[in-house]
Amino acid sequence: MSIGNSPEDERPFEDVSEEARPSIGRALRDARVAAGMTVDDVSTATRVRIAIVQAIEADDFAPCGGDVYARGHLRTLARAVRLDPAPLLAQYDDEHGGRPAPTPAAPLFEAERIRPERRGPNWTAAMVAAIVAVVGFVGFTVVKGDSDSGAKNEVAGGPSPTTKKTASPSAGGKKPAAPKPDPTESAIAAAPQDKVTVQVSATDGRSWVAAKDHNGRLLFDGLLKQGQSKTFQDSSKINLVLGDAGAIQLYVNGKKIDDDFQPGAVERLTYTKGDPQVG
């Protein structure tokens, strides 16, 4: 009778959950396909180059340039395809030796503290400008006083003045210029009817925005910070990709779009002329 475990008992346990778990790249690719997005769409929404997106989906993190950048790309891509980045980051740490050491906070804020000093006002130039303004005002007052006194003398010695009539349009052959409309709070209110005009405003945060015209030409590709706006115009169609649609307020052809976009949602929109219609 032998003492101890049999060879069968010494066999290692199989980690079924680890084997069943898909790779990081496979999980990102499946989530992108489920969201109906192409690699180009993800690259446009996140500003991560197409080659890096494709490499990550193939579980090749070498093009990222290091663990810090790889983790940052994973977080950005996961949010773009509506995937929770936390499990992917934990899986990456398990497979690549743990989370990297945090970067010291001091150098990050050094750039904020080092700012060029504001120069004080140039009092010499200000005094010269004030003297010139005073001399000009005095000269204008003297000339105006002489002309007013001459006009009064002429009225006292001549016939009574008559009311000046406005010349009719037919007399000179020209119609009077139409009064200019009062400026509105937004330039989108003056959008022409024969074009499509889209104003994108980051009202509740910041968001990546990409805009193309009807020919597919890229009009804008960048980050709108909170409080910033961009206006795009085309003869027939504007295509938009919003990285965080919940932070965006849209005005299309002079009308506010009240779609209930969710925070963090990636939206692909198309607008045409006339009443706002999402394509």
Rank of each mutant, 00 (worst) to 15 (best):
V241Y: 02
D67T: 08
S235L: 02
G139R: 10
V135Y: 07
P181T: 13
V252C: 08
L88A: 00
D221K: 05
G222W: 00
K180D: 12
A171T: 10
R113Y: 02
R26Q: 12
S43I: 07
Q193Y: 07
S43C: 03
P85L: 02
A111F: 08
G97W: 09
V209S: 04
A265R: 06
A178P: 11
R71S: 08
T46E: 09
G279S: 06
A133H: 02
E110F: 04
D94P: 02
T184Y: 11
R82W: 10
T197D: 11
V128A: 15
F61K: 04
G157M: 12
Y271R: 04
K212T: 10
Q228G: 01
P176F: 03
D194P: 12
P161E: 15
P176E: 10
A62L: 14
P107R: 07
Q262Y: 01
Q262C: 00
Q262T: 14
K256E: 11
A189R: 13
V68I: 15
H73R: 14
V128W: 15
L89F: 03
Q249S: 09
D94T: 11
S186C: 07
T76W: 11
D182K: 14
D15R: 13
S207C: 02
P102D: 13
V81R: 05
P7R: 14
R11M: 04
V128E: 09
P87D: 11
K164N: 15
P121R: 09
P12K: 06
K165S: 13
K255C: 05
P104R: 11
T163Q: 14
V53H: 00
Q199L: 00
S17I: 10
Y69R: 14
S170N: 15
K165I: 15
F61H: 01
P63Y: 14
F140A: 04
G66H: 15
D234E: 07
P7F: 06
K256M: 11
P161G: 07
P107I: 10
P176H: 11
I248Y: 04
T184L: 08
A189V: 14
E117D: 12
T197C: 11
A151D: 15
T203G: 08
Q54V: 02
N122G: 09
R26W: 04
E8Q: 13
T184S: 13
E18Q: 13
M1A: 11
A171S: 13
V198D: 15
L74G: 02
V42Y: 01
P87H: 07
G216I: 01
L242M: 00
H96L: 03
A190C: 06
L108R: 08
E14Y: 12
V128R: 15
T272P: 00
G25S: 10
L250Y: 03
W123E: 14
I131Y: 00
F261E: 06
F140L: 06
D244S: 03
G72W: 08
F261G: 05
K273M: 06
A130W: 12
A78T: 05
G98S: 07
S2Q: 14
A90C: 06
G36S: 06
R268L: 05
A106S: 12
R217P: 03
V143P: 06
K273S: 08
A190L: 01
L77C: 01
V39Y: 02
A80G: 00
